[in-house]
Measured scan of single mutants.
Amino acid sequence: QIGDLVNIDLDLEIVQSLQHGHGGWTDGMFETLTTTGTVCGIDEDHDIVVQYPSGNRWTFNPAVL
């Protein structure tokens, strides 16, 4: 839910696979593998929007978090 702290604890290849159809994966997202983020929103597809200390916001398949 919004305000929750979240981490990704999966291998890169699994995360990339799960992201298909959920915003995809870009090289800029590598920070998300090692950094705790804060849930800042849930979109119309029930994907999770997470903000990181860098100021970046990324959209994830809920199965990734």
Rank of each mutant, 00 (worst) to 15 (best):
Q1P: 12
Q1H: 15
I2T: 06
I2D: 04
I2V: 12
I2Q: 09
I2N: 10
I2P: 10
I2G: 06
G3V: 00
G3F: 02
D4W: 01
D4E: 14
D4M: 05
D4Y: 15
D4G: 08
D4V: 06
D4N: 08
L5F: 12
L5V: 08
L5D: 09
L5Y: 13
L5C: 07
L5W: 10
L5N: 12
L5E: 15
V6I: 07
V6N: 02
V6A: 05
V6K: 03
V6P: 04
N7K: 09
N7L: 11
N7P: 03
N7F: 13
I8H: 05
I8A: 03
D9F: 12
D9G: 08
D9E: 12
D9N: 14
D9L: 06
D9W: 05
D9K: 09
D9M: 10
D9Q: 11
L10A: 11
L10P: 04
L10D: 14
L10Q: 11
D11Q: 07
D11N: 08
D11G: 07
D11S: 12
D11I: 03
D11R: 09
D11V: 04
L12Y: 09
L12D: 01
L12E: 07
L12K: 09
L12P: 11
L12V: 13
L12F: 12
E13M: 10
E13A: 13
E13Q: 09
E13I: 08
E13V: 07
E13D: 11
E13F: 05
E13Y: 08
E13K: 13
I14E: 14
I14S: 14
I14T: 14
I14P: 01
I14H: 11
I14R: 10
I14C: 12
V15K: 06
V15R: 00
V15I: 13
V15E: 05
V15T: 07
Q16C: 02
Q16T: 09
Q16S: 06
Q16G: 06
Q16A: 10
Q16L: 09
S17R: 15
S17C: 11
S17W: 14
L18D: 04
L18W: 07
L18G: 05
L18A: 03
L18I: 04
L18Y: 09
Q19V: 03
Q19K: 03
Q19M: 01
Q19Y: 02
Q19A: 02
Q19R: 00
Q19H: 06
Q19P: 04
H20I: 11
H20A: 14
H20W: 11
H20P: 06
H20S: 11
H20N: 15
H20V: 15
G21R: 06
G21C: 02
G21F: 13
G21K: 07
G21S: 04
H22Y: 03
H22C: 04
H22T: 00
H22G: 04
H22M: 05
H22S: 02
H22W: 01
G23R: 02
G23I: 06
G23L: 05
G23V: 10
G23M: 05
G23D: 03
G23E: 00
G24M: 02
G24N: 06
G24A: 06
G24C: 07
G24S: 05
G24P: 03
G24V: 04
W25L: 02
W25N: 00
W25H: 06
W25D: 01
W25S: 07
W25Q: 07
W25C: 05
W25G: 06
T26Y: 09
T26K: 10
T26V: 15
T26G: 06
T26L: 07
T26A: 14
D27M: 07
D27Y: 05
D27G: 09
G28A: 15
G28W: 06
G28L: 13
G28T: 10
G28E: 14
M29W: 00
F30K: 14
F30Y: 15
F30R: 15
F30H: 12
F30S: 15
E31K: 00
E31L: 00
T32E: 07
T32P: 05
T32K: 02
T32C: 15
T32S: 14
T32V: 13
T32Q: 01
T32A: 15
L33A: 05
L33S: 03
L33M: 12
L33I: 06
L33Q: 10
L33T: 03
T34L: 09
T34C: 13
T34P: 00
T34R: 13
T34N: 13
T35A: 08
T35C: 10
T35E: 13
T35Q: 09
T35M: 08
T35W: 02
T35K: 06
T35I: 03
T35S: 14
T36E: 12
T36G: 03
T36V: 09
T36Q: 14
G37Q: 02
G37W: 01
G37N: 01
G37R: 00
G37A: 01
T38I: 14
T38D: 08
T38F: 10
T38P: 03
T38A: 09
T38Y: 12
V39H: 07
V39P: 10
V39G: 08
V39I: 12
C40K: 07
C40E: 09
C40T: 10
C40L: 08
G41E: 14
G41N: 04
G41L: 06
G41F: 12
I42N: 12
I42A: 07
I42D: 04
I42W: 14
I42L: 09
D43V: 06
D43L: 09
D43Y: 01
D43M: 07
D43R: 13
D43C: 05
D43N: 15
E44F: 10
E44M: 11
E44V: 13
E44T: 12
E44K: 14
E44S: 15
E44G: 13
E44R: 14
E44W: 07
D45K: 14
D45I: 02
D45C: 07
D45N: 15
D45M: 14
H46K: 13
H46Q: 12
H46P: 02
H46A: 13
H46F: 13
H46Y: 09
H46G: 15
H46T: 07
I48Y: 05
I48E: 00
I48A: 05
I48M: 11
V49H: 04
V49G: 00
V49I: 13
V49A: 01
V49Y: 04
V49C: 13
V50T: 15
V50H: 13
V50E: 09
V50G: 02
V50W: 03
Q51G: 07
Y52V: 01
Y52A: 03
Y52R: 02
Y52L: 01
Y52N: 07
Y52K: 09
Y52G: 03
Y52H: 04
Y52T: 00
P53A: 08
P53T: 00
P53S: 05
P53M: 00
S54C: 05
S54F: 07
G55T: 05
G55Q: 05
G55E: 15
G55A: 00
N56P: 01
N56H: 10
N56E: 07
N56I: 05
N56C: 03
N56Y: 15
N56V: 04
N56Q: 07
N56L: 02
R57K: 15
R57W: 05
R57I: 15
R57E: 09
R57M: 10
R57T: 13
R57A: 10
R57S: 11
W58C: 03
W58V: 00
W58K: 06
W58G: 02
W58R: 03
T59Q: 08
T59G: 01
T59R: 10
T59C: 13
T59P: 02
F60Y: 03
F60Q: 02
F60G: 03
F60W: 05
F60S: 02
N61P: 00
N61D: 02
N61M: 03
N61S: 04
P62G: 06
P62W: 00
P62E: 08
A63V: 12
A63G: 07
A63W: 10
A63K: 14
V64T: 12
V64M: 01
V64A: 11
V64K: 03
L65V: 12
L65Q: 04
L65I: 08
L65M: 08
L65E: 05
L65Y: 08
